[in-house]
Simulated scan of single mutants.
Amino acid sequence: MAHVDRLANTHVLVFGGTSGIGYAIANMALHYGARVTISGSGQAKVDTKVEKLRSLYPNTPASNVAGFAADLLDKENLEKNLKSLLDQVTNGGKNKVDHIAFTAGDQLSLPKVQEVTIETALHGFTVRFLAPAIIAKLLSTGAYMPVSANSSFTLTGGTNTHRPMPNWTFAAAIGASVEGLTRGLAVDLKPIRVNVVLPGAIHTELFQGLLDVSTPEKIAGLKKGFSLLDAFGQPEDIAEAYAWIMRDRFANGGLVTSDGGRLLVGTESLG
């Protein structure tokens, strides 16, 4: 039997799909013949990126790319906002999603241990932990995703959870909570598969902001400190990790790294 690409003719929903890793996942999925829906915090930017994706694949029906905004920072209305989004994405459950990649995140809160408050310690959990937790609740109903090993929900953590830099205590704690959520959901949502990808230093728009205020010497030090390859990863590199998880019906409850060997590098030069 000839090999068939398992992403072809599937429906992929990407949270955080307007930039960085999320946009690269959407681009990759379209290339392999999937129907793609992206979500971001603002509808104007979502619409712009939908049109850009359509322009990259002019022979693909325009209906194969869609996008809807959702405010994941609105904690009081988070479940309502996510349910509304999933209803739009799936046409009320008639056209379910096969795969969800969750790459959304707001600006990281990095309070120092000596200065942390209850509010600053908890702030970073809203988008990165609470939002995927509520998505999982909605998926558990069976209304939005087929309850099958062909289906997947992939979260995003970070290698700094395992090798935190100075003053990254609370960011590392958020990442650890996402990893625990992943393992628990893999059990509770079975046979839907749940995994988490741990990016290293990926050259996204957000990361470029750090480079813009760094000297060439500092950038060279970051490359050495963040990777055995003396380089930063590209979003299109790590997008393949999400693709593998979507395709592999036996990948479940796992932590997948794409970090250039980041976990084998010390943190001393990064403080």
Results as ranks from 00 to 15, higher is better:
residue 3 H to C: 09
residue 3 H to A: 15
residue 5 D to F: 02
residue 7 L to C: 11
residue 8 A to W: 00
residue 11 H to I: 02
residue 15 F to I: 05
residue 15 F to T: 03
residue 15 F to W: 07
residue 16 G to M: 04
residue 17 G to C: 09
residue 20 G to V: 05
residue 20 G to S: 04
residue 21 I to L: 08
residue 21 I to Q: 03
residue 23 Y to H: 10
residue 25 I to T: 07
residue 26 A to I: 06
residue 28 M to H: 14
residue 30 L to S: 04
residue 30 L to R: 11
residue 32 Y to R: 12
residue 33 G to A: 04
residue 34 A to L: 05
residue 35 R to M: 03
residue 37 T to F: 04
residue 37 T to D: 05
residue 41 S to D: 06
residue 42 G to L: 09
residue 42 G to N: 15
residue 48 T to H: 04
residue 49 K to R: 13
residue 55 S to C: 00
residue 56 L to Y: 10
residue 57 Y to F: 14
residue 58 P to V: 04
residue 62 A to P: 02
residue 65 V to G: 00
residue 68 F to Q: 02
residue 69 A to P: 04
residue 70 A to W: 02
residue 73 L to Y: 03
residue 77 N to F: 03
residue 78 L to Q: 15
residue 79 E to L: 12
residue 82 L to G: 09
residue 82 L to R: 12
residue 84 S to C: 13
residue 87 D to T: 14
residue 89 V to T: 11
residue 90 T to F: 05
residue 91 N to L: 05
residue 91 N to T: 02
residue 92 G to V: 06
residue 93 G to R: 09
residue 99 H to E: 13
residue 100 I to P: 11
residue 101 A to K: 01
residue 105 G to P: 09
residue 105 G to E: 05
residue 107 Q to R: 14
residue 107 Q to P: 08
residue 114 Q to R: 14
residue 114 Q to T: 15
residue 115 E to N: 14
residue 115 E to H: 10
residue 116 V to C: 06
residue 118 I to L: 08
residue 118 I to E: 03
residue 120 T to G: 04
residue 121 A to F: 15
residue 124 G to W: 10
residue 126 T to N: 11
residue 127 V to Y: 10
residue 129 F to H: 15
residue 129 F to T: 12
residue 130 L to V: 08
residue 134 I to F: 06
residue 137 K to F: 00
residue 137 K to W: 00
residue 139 L to A: 09
residue 141 T to K: 03
residue 145 M to F: 06
residue 153 F to W: 06
residue 154 T to Y: 02
residue 156 T to V: 10
residue 158 G to S: 05
residue 158 G to Q: 01
residue 159 T to G: 01
residue 160 N to H: 02
residue 164 P to A: 03
residue 167 N to V: 01
residue 170 F to E: 01
residue 172 A to T: 09
residue 173 A to F: 08
residue 174 I to P: 05
residue 174 I to L: 11
residue 180 G to M: 09
residue 182 T to N: 10
residue 185 L to F: 04
residue 188 D to L: 07
residue 189 L to E: 14
residue 190 K to M: 08
residue 191 P to C: 13
residue 192 I to P: 13
residue 195 N to P: 10
residue 196 V to H: 02
residue 196 V to A: 10
residue 202 I to F: 08
residue 203 H to Q: 11
residue 204 T to N: 05
residue 206 L to Q: 11
residue 206 L to K: 12
residue 207 F to G: 01
residue 208 Q to S: 12
residue 210 L to K: 11
residue 211 L to H: 08
residue 217 E to T: 13
residue 218 K to I: 10
residue 219 I to C: 03
residue 221 G to H: 03
residue 221 G to A: 13
residue 223 K to D: 12
residue 224 K to Y: 03
residue 224 K to G: 14
residue 225 G to N: 08
residue 225 G to F: 08
residue 228 L to N: 13
residue 228 L to C: 14
residue 228 L to D: 08
residue 232 F to R: 08
residue 237 D to M: 02
residue 239 A to W: 01
residue 242 Y to V: 04
residue 242 Y to W: 00
residue 244 W to M: 13
residue 247 R to W: 01
residue 248 D to F: 00
residue 249 R to Y: 03
residue 250 F to N: 12
residue 251 A to D: 02
residue 253 G to T: 05
residue 253 G to L: 05
residue 254 G to N: 07
residue 255 L to F: 07
residue 255 L to Y: 04
residue 260 G to Q: 06
residue 262 R to K: 14
residue 263 L to V: 09
residue 265 V to N: 05
residue 265 V to W: 06
residue 267 T to L: 07
residue 268 E to F: 14
residue 269 S to K: 14
residue 269 S to D: 15
residue 271 G to H: 13
